[in-house]
Design a protein around this nucleic acid. Structure first.
Lengths: 342, 342
DNA sequence: TTGTATGCGTTATCAA
DNA sequence: TTGATAACGCATACAA
């Protein structure tokens, strides 16, 4: 009876405190904060003043509860440490850092089941948008996404059948172009080295195979893969293995730049001439590839831009402007360097 | 009048639905979910059944609003792409993935002001715990953390004066040990190569200087730094610059492994013998350092373990068991390799 | 342009 | 061990 004021709240100023101080109603404060143009200039000023005075900050939980919508972007990537996704995530953060949106990042560890679990978790917040990696969601995950009730952007790949929106590039073409480049350069026993072999790696392998078969150079013994996560040291292992299988090997297309770097180091160690005896092409074009000696040919992928585009598309849809194009192919670029220049 | 049921809710099952189905009151469902032991076995069973039947998931926003506490760990790192922090973050995610906690990740871009901004943002959610990087918070940020009302763990460094809890290692000692190692090996003109030069880099430099001065080998011209963010290509630039300044340079302690790798490649390119003509020591001991040719000496830092320890400490405190030790020094390890073996 | 009444889904409080 | 009631802080619906 005596103290109807906050039993539980930590005594932080609420919207009601601001309203009282500014001499208006709570809902007017709410509006002034979210849609300033709908409130008269005069009141807006008073409210801004009161907000500053009190150090008021809206409670995102109360806001989410009342509006049935959290200002949260859910982002699901298969790995946090993989440099590739780190770049994508950076693009997302950079695009969202000056707005009202928080980012909820999830690591699926390349597991479809973990993706489902995280999706459930994220969905329970009623996120403003969802960004997920790849196009190989489980049936259950796909169902969840279709009925998510918010914009959904799949990233990293292109494909014919987006759940909602899609931005990426063709890994098949990337593998094909990289392999074709080495064939054009004159290499005849071009191997494929792949770690992890997630769906995107598989498609790069398919691209490799298409190019090799097109030139009549395919031989299954040239393909060396492992489900083990990628690393520089694994690149070395795979290369040794490949060379043991096929001593006439004269080039390798590597799943990614880590593998390529491992190959390069092993060539140094074993005094194998690059590009004379072995040609090397990587994938992603990390900074180190152009610094390496010899510098390493790679496929430059638009990782940061994928992040930015994904956010831009989602924001458009949130703003009510449904993007015309639902699929964006950002392409890639072959960067020929010393490692294949013979 | 007709339909007092949910105006706005998307029709998802609520705790009231579960309660009705289980024939109990809402609060009992709430308890059964959070503190099962406080509810009779019989009711617990019925409630679990109803939950499963309905596919009920608690609304984290409503929960946070009502309890004035969100099941969120706020994590602030200076960079998302830096491999070092990626490992720390992985440790944090791995430690939290099977619990009820979400993770809110923020990227301060090495800016104290951005850190303050994010802190405000995070605090408005009333997080369960906060993990922040480094010990050089601004006065304002420190104030916010002291009054955060939740466990706060500073990570990456050790120091005498934790805001609440602290887990890391001594960067000064790391720099000292790395430098001393090269001096012990016989190098006499040991340079320091540093990018970014954030506070931790500064302390590694101080350690370098202490070791160099201790041996009577310090010379300011041996120090080459830049505020530019670190990269492999920058390593090459810095090394060239250092060599131009001091042609008698015979070793370098690198701020981090990226720089060291850039130096190694430049040595290859310029046919400079490593370790004969130039010794190289890096910092962090990324996987590639032991694969490189020659393999590169580095300081192995417990990044993943820092993440795990930080979470463990915070969880202890959340559970009401205030950890005795407020500061954990996880140490580091010098890994001598070919690049300094002469 | 502004305000009133009401509910969002959950938990704290207090009583039984 | 269980339940009735009243917040939590804000935004929607509707009226003025």
């Amino acid at each position: 009876m005596m103290k109807p004021r906050s039993r539980r709240g930590g005594g932080r100023p609420t919207i009601a405190d601001v309203a009282r101080k500014a001499g208006v109603s709570a809902i007017t404060v709410s509006r002034a904060l979210r849609e300033p143009e709908r409130v008269s200039k005069e009141l807006r000023r008073q409210i801004q003043h009161a907000v500053g005075e009190l150090g008021y900050m809206p409670d995102p939980n109360a806001r989410a509860l009342a509006s049935a919508r959290a200002d949260v972007f859910g982002v699901l990537v298969p790995s946090l440490t993989n440099n590739v996704f780190a770049e994508v995530v950076r693009g997302i953060y950079d695009s969202l850092s000056d707005g009202p949106f928080r980012i909820q990042l999830g690591d699926t560890h390349y597991s479809g089941l973990e993706e489902e679990r995280l999706l459930h978790l994220f969905l329970s917040q009623r996120p403003a948008a969802l960004i997920v990696s790849g196009i190989d969601q489980t049936a259950a995950a796909r169902r969840l996404l279709v009925t998510a009730g918010c914009p959904v952007v799949q990233i990293m790949e292109t494909g014919p059948d987006p759940i909602d929106m899609l931005v990426g590039f063709s890994h098949f073409d990337g593998g094909r172009v990289a392999t074709q480049h080495m064939i054009n350069t004159g290499y005849r026993r071009v191997g494929f080295l792949g770690a992890r072999m997630d769906p995107r790696s598989q498609r790069r392998l398919a691209g490799y195979r298409a190019a090799a078969e097109g030139a009549g150079l395919f031989d299954p013994r040239l393909v060396t893969t492992t489900p083990v996560p990628s690393s520089v040291s694994l690149g070395r292992e795979l290369f040794r293995e490949a060379l043991a299988k096929v001593p006439t090997l004269d080039a390798v297309f590597c799943n990614n730049d880590d593998i390529a770097l491992g190959v390069l180091f092993e060539c140094h160690r074993a005094s194998i001439d690059v590009p004379g005896k072995i040609g090397i092409t990587g994938f992603n074009d990390l900074d180190m590839m152009h610094v390496a000696y010899p510098s390493v040919t790679s496929i430059r992928t638009p990782r940061y831009e994928i992040g930015r585009n994904a956010v831009a598309m989602a924001l458009e849809e949130i703003d009510g402007n449904r993007p015309e194009t639902r699929v964006i192919d950002l392409g890639f670029e072959l960067i020929p360097r010393e490692s294949t220049a013979r």
